[in-house]
Design a protein around this nucleic acid. Sequence first.
DNA 1: CGCCACTATGACAACGTTGTCGCCCAATAG
DNA 2: CTATTGGGCGACAACGTTGTCATAGTGGCG
Lengths: 327, 327
Amino acid sequence: MSDVARLAGVSIKTVSRVVNDEPAVHPDTAERVMAAIEQLGFRRNLGARNLRRGSTTGTIGLIVEDVGNPFYSELNRAVERIATSFGRQVLTGSSEENSDRERELALEFCARRVDGILVVPAGMQHGYLVPEMRAGTPVVFIDRPAGDIVADTVLVDNIGGTVEAVTHLVKHGHRRIAFLADSADIFTASERLRGFREGCARAGIFYDERLVIMRTPTPSSVGDAVSALLSGLEPATAVLAGNNRVAVHLLRALAHADKRPAMISFDDFELADLLDPPVTVMAHDVSALGHAAAELLFARVQGDQSTPRKVVLPVHLVARGSGEVAP
Amino acid sequence: MSDVARLAGVSIKTVSRVVNDEPAVHPDTAERVMAAIEQLGFRRNLGARNLRRGSTTGTIGLIVEDVGNPFYSELNRAVERIATSFGRQVLTGSSEENSDRERELALEFCARRVDGILVVPAGMQHGYLVPEMRAGTPVVFIDRPAGDIVADTVLVDNIGGTVEAVTHLVKHGHRRIAFLADSADIFTASERLRGFREGCARAGIFYDERLVIMRTPTPSSVGDAVSALLSGLEPATAVLAGNNRVAVHLLRALAHADKRPAMISFDDFELADLLDPPVTVMAHDVSALGHAAAELLFARVQGDQSTPRKVVLPVHLVARGSGEVAP
DNA sequence: CGCCACTATGACAACGTTGTCGCCCAATAG
DNA sequence: CTATTGGGCGACAACGTTGTCATAGTGGCG
């Protein structure tokens, strides 16, 4: 900036005025300054600016499990859209479902003085965020609630959705329904399990623990689970997949099976409608999840001090075929 | 920091020493300082630190067309992985295939003094980056080359891959092959068109302009294209989809067709193997694309001054069924 | 006992920017 | 003519941090 000032024959303050479009600059002077800026390729240092002004940095942090997972990338996109509309940029990070990594990312974002943080929490302990929140960095939890603090949260109706899925399968004649989901340590998985039990109870079918398998979905873990569930004296006639990852692995495991059970996936996913049979899903609007969370965050950034809110978005059944086959 | 210093009864410099693990601090003093830091919830301001040290900011920028597109989110993930290994964080932005937006994002990243930029360019003019690159911000182009400047670039073998796809279809008896791709303004689409023509020439089949349709893929644009290609006196017997978006829309358009043409997709995509018939693709390693680009970028960040490099990654055929049906 | 080396600490400036205040000068009013 | 106004501009401090240098104290050595 001082180089520009020297070249234009003005003080650095005047250069500052020009780059900030402040009024009290003579047009001729402004032009000289602009020419100097152009010639030197000057670009103002936003870091220094933010430091001096003590204002916001114009960035927010987003922590998800894996930015490469289509579910989270859609979320990322929705968040970015809102952030852009508020003139902010997004720092993203993948926690890899590891609470230490989540914490590390969150604290690094705080050190960068992001204006706020959106997090799909991996861990259950969030006390480490209390000082940061008290210091003025708003945090909104997405898809899963905070472990041990009170904070804004945006969720989907995990229980209601799962109950509806079970009800739907029972309506089509199933009484041996398996629940195949991610590890019970994960909030959404354990909530959906609760919904599964409640669905069984309401439909008046026996809740059989042997038909519930919950662990991190990999091709082999899901493959093994499928073998177990579909064999034996009373095999499952329908499978409820606890999320989109489980559903994809389940489909692959079933691809070459001779007799395929009915299935419903919690979470919609691309091409579900083009498979054979098309996959019935409990769908929810992932973009809406991101929108709602980001809107909430920016309300906080702009000074909203009301008590923490909890938003629950609806889940609805999209019947496509796989969930409507008889036992 | 001065609050911490006051509480611990030391100077701010000593606090600085403690937070930076500098050796010459008495253990007792260090402990008092740590206690004060804990009590006040102090976290050092990375912006101020970077300003003072004049060092790197520890961030890189990534510009893609759409962070929500699985192709780019996989790329994002790969880039993030490398960035993390170099202790950097990633600012992401979606250009929405708009060159003004691309430019805006890139210049904002520069204003934030990112250590480097990775960009899947939307536009063809990149002169605006010259001052920034001269000022020391390395830029690596991914998937598409820079328009009018010389810079590091990582591409996939678009021409070779398309030639192979055409050859494969011809080998299975097709002579009326359609090419359905994104707008020819997009580098990858136009390169693949070149490959398509070359493939036709090499295989000795007639290149029929009427079988080439290139425009932004939407359900309706692809649907219309399919109707046109598959009707008439000499309909196409095979379709080559120019990218994963086109492929998905194509599959949906064909879902209820009575006679389905053979098809190959340039780009692999999730569940391609589970469709009926499974989709034959020209696959390339998107993660490798991100890895290579990020590695190249960090080499530059660390001072590599060699002449700009161009890396071309291989594409290979994955025969699954849809590309092996006879006319 | 004086000197040196070394440890532990602090004062101060500087990074690049902007807010505050004050100065100069021309134009206008009285 | 003088007094007042306000447009245009610059000097300076400050944002939070760290590099440089100086200083005070301590222990060892000749």
